[in-house]
Amino acid sequence: MNPKAPMNASRPLLEVNGLKKHFPLKSGLFGGKKGYVYAVDGVTFAIDKGETLSLVGESGCGKSTVGKAILRLIEPTAGEVFLAGERIDNIPISQLRPMRRRIQVVFQDPFSSLNPRQRVRDIIAEPIVNFGLAANGSELDDRVAELMDKVQLPRDAMKRFPHEFSGGQRQRVGIARALAPGSDIIICDEAVSALDVSVKAQIVNLLSDLQDELGLSLLFISHDLAIVEHLTHRVAVMYLGKIVELADRRTLFATPHHPYTKALLSAVPVPDPTAKRQRIILHGDVPSPINPPSGCRFHTRCPFVFDRCRSEEPQLRRVAGGQMSACHLDEVPDVAVIPKAA
């Protein structure tokens, strides 16, 4: 699968199996259910130790919901989540705490992800205190100082409040907090999307360095394919609550299979004005996740749509090597497909 990830464990570190999250739509005086928002509708993937899996897709495709459901910040509707072989999606919240130590999260907005009334030291110390990982105050201070070194923040920043920092520095504080309990996997929910390009690069490099140093696994949720290409091992492309393509980085960027992936990749700006490339421009908006289209969810915007797409939902299946794609076209490679007139 991934050459860089060590394969010492028999099972992957994190397994997500058919994860679903349907938000009920309530209406009226008595809160009768009107329907559901099918935010995540059957997502399956696995992450090995030391591996980075990126979850990419347009906004609203459910990628952040996947992250929150894994963390149990929202309760998944169906599906299974395993952490190191242990099922964590259905155990009571009270028994969840040991798991929380191993999975941490870094959020998108560096301004609202830190409590404005807490000092940096207390923010980073919180998980350490929660899990009783420091015997006394001085040990706690040492651990916090160590974490601040790891994320390359000056140690005197400990006594300061979040508003005294820049976005990039705040994100470093967030990363230090995520590392604090000695976590195995960090879910980066659009962790660099709110940052300036130069700061973005620094944070991405910091994450890669930390991964190499600590053997961390990362679930990197992003819409930014340029960043994803820079740091990921594997990529899962999501569209309307489903994974449409899953492949290792090189394969996905070189030979995308699913029409949606192709469209996404063709939209990535290339820093060469003379480069000739074929642009696939999608028309229309993403359909509503309340009434997802029948059959293939992408059929309303797919340039290669044919009858079967409208009625039958394609399954995610292996197309070549480790590459998985959910498209009927993969089954009929010999048929000459003519793009629909735009």
Partner: peptide
Amino acid sequence: EQPYVEAAVAAGTR
């Protein structure tokens, strides 16, 4: 709904 509260939940704060 603030991310810092969600982060605290994720960090195991009771």
